[in-house]
Amino acid sequence: MRLRTILIAAAASSVLATPALAHRMWLLPSTSNLATTKEYVTVDAAVSNDLFYPDHVAMDPAQISVWAPDGSKGEIENAAKGRYRGTFDVAVNKPGTWRIGTERVSIAGTFKLGADQWRVGGRRPAGATNAVATPAEIPANATDIKLAENTARNYVYVTAGAPTKIALTGKGLEFDPVTHPSELVADEEARFRFLIDGKPAAGVKVTVVPGGKKYRSAEEAQELTTGADGMVAVKWPVAGWHWLSASAEDAKPEDKRASTRRMSFTTTLEVVAP
């Protein structure tokens, strides 16, 4: 449990710090569209540099939550964690758009104890000294406490029948697509809105990377920024599965011990050929 938490935190913090370079956490459903409500979607979950090539760390299916279109909680089945890849199935047994994924909230940062710099949470090498796991362990005489609240969301969308609107919570960084994620086509520009605390968020950095780098020479990642209306327009270089990750930072953490809030939203989008 402990090891897993650290691993996840490490993966999360690296994704947040440098989205263009670091390991990417990804969920890859077998399809984004199902014709009936008698079918399953099977999902791969991993952390790796290249998409969607599992060669680094498996994601534990135990972290996954499933929401049916009516907001009720769904179940994962046949979960397994392999060396490089977690995998699970979801019975998509109600019509509409399902949301499958994780939301992880962690606090990480630094403080001083006398002249020594200490670390809180985040990536800690084995046997690290001058480090504590949680803010609760910060000694009372600590100074220069700098903590950041990290919220990392990673959801994929699977639709049975006609798509339905994706529910929003009004909290943190959220994906409010104008073009529904279950109806993306390679020759049509997609428009996605990002919200922070329910309001259109300008200046959100959005990275879009097509899968299958092995089969081309360049990553062909797009680095986009949302406009004043919180919108980005995405042109697809190819059909196929694409990884999209958005990140933003502000000074409105929910946990008041933190001074900054880092938010990320990641999804995997299926773009079909016209």
Binding site: T31, N33, A35, T36, A162, P163, V185
Partner: peptide, 17 residues
């Protein structure tokens, strides 16, 4: 009906509803 979504353009243009 499972494979109706393979008619992917029709599915999106109205088949699904």
């Amino acid at each position: 009906t499972k494979w109706l979504a393979d008619l992917r353009t029709w599915w999106r243009k109205g088949g699904r509803s």
